[in-house]
Design a protein around this nucleic acid. Structure first.
Lengths: 155, 155
DNA sequence: TGGGTCTTTATGGGATACCATGGGAAAACA
DNA sequence: TGTTTTCCCATGGTATCCCATAAAGACCCA
């Protein structure tokens, strides 16, 4: 089952809406999740987005700690407090919230990047920089040591 | 099925009322709980709120102790004595009680923070501080236990 | 192969519904 | 009777729904 692949850049309109790339919409439709699950990334200026697969992974992380404990509360605040569930309108668009704009620096364009089980939302220029860096790292990993690179569990 | 997610800040009016964010109301409606279950958090200046899911979690916690034992009574007092059941009015608002105001320091604004199975009620400024701390702890927790969440997965 | 048509997609914009908030009046309370 | 709570309605702003349009691509048929 193919996931989110490739990347696309779309404009957002005067109302702050942007079209989700059609190929991504198709994946989401198959997933069956109502709307879109978004969470700000802790280690880069992007937002992770997806459906049930992503939500399940987030939930799994917090289930490692007992509910009502200080650790669980802190983790849940960091995870779910930094999440959103924007609706997808009839034309396949979502509105980019202020929280996302602030975290990503998005102003008038959005880059969608497929990462198989989820996709990321970037400000186009920042994505270009990140991508260059990621490719350098990938190259170093592939040529340096050799613990099987892809298909593992990213997070 | 997504629970309470994201965070919102609303003003309370001259009568001490505040609107519960519409997305949270939708979750409560699905949960079926009449009104709102609130309990002051034991480890931070916030109030836990929710419906049947939260109540079930609290009950489970107290059932771990044999009834009629001194421990059970003490726990029950601590749990249920610190609880409230404010009603939600026709416009989706609740009045913030003095107990909550005192425990949280809420004056004229309220921040609602989703933690999936429940949400928390904070004074906005205190939440900002707690959130920064929570993110640090979350990073430590997630990197500490799981193998290697290195994330270097371009594609 | 080439031309033409039809569908899909991204984007713009108007109209409507929803939501947070304020305030008045009835009802309950002390 | 004075005070507080509860219910109801008003309003401004925003988000959502719906339709229009243009461009690009897919498809078909000669």
């Amino acid at each position: 089952m193919a996931g989110f692949v490739s990347h696309f850049t779309n404009r957002l309109d005067a109302k702050g809406r942007v079209s989700i790339p059609a190929p991504f919409r198709a994946v989401l439709a198959r997933d069956g999740f109502e709307g879109l699950y978004c969470i700000t990334s802790a280690h880069c200026d992007a937002v992770d987005a997806g459906g049930n697969d992503l939500l399940a992974e987030i939930s799994k992380r917090s289930e490692a700690f007992a509910k009502l404990s200080p650790d669980h509360d802190a983790l849940a605040v960091a995870l779910f407090g930094a999440s959103e569930n924007p609706k997808i309108d009839g034309d396949g668009r979502v509105t980019i919230s202020d929280m996302i704009k602030e975290h990503t620096g998005i102003a008038d364009q959005v880059t969608f990047v497929g990462l198989n089980y989820k996709f990321q939302i970037w400000e186009p220029e920042k994505f270009r920089e990140y991508r260059a860096e990621a490719q350098r790292r990938a190259l170093a990993m592939l040529s340096g040591q050799s613990p099987a690179p892809s298909q593992g569990e990213p997070s």
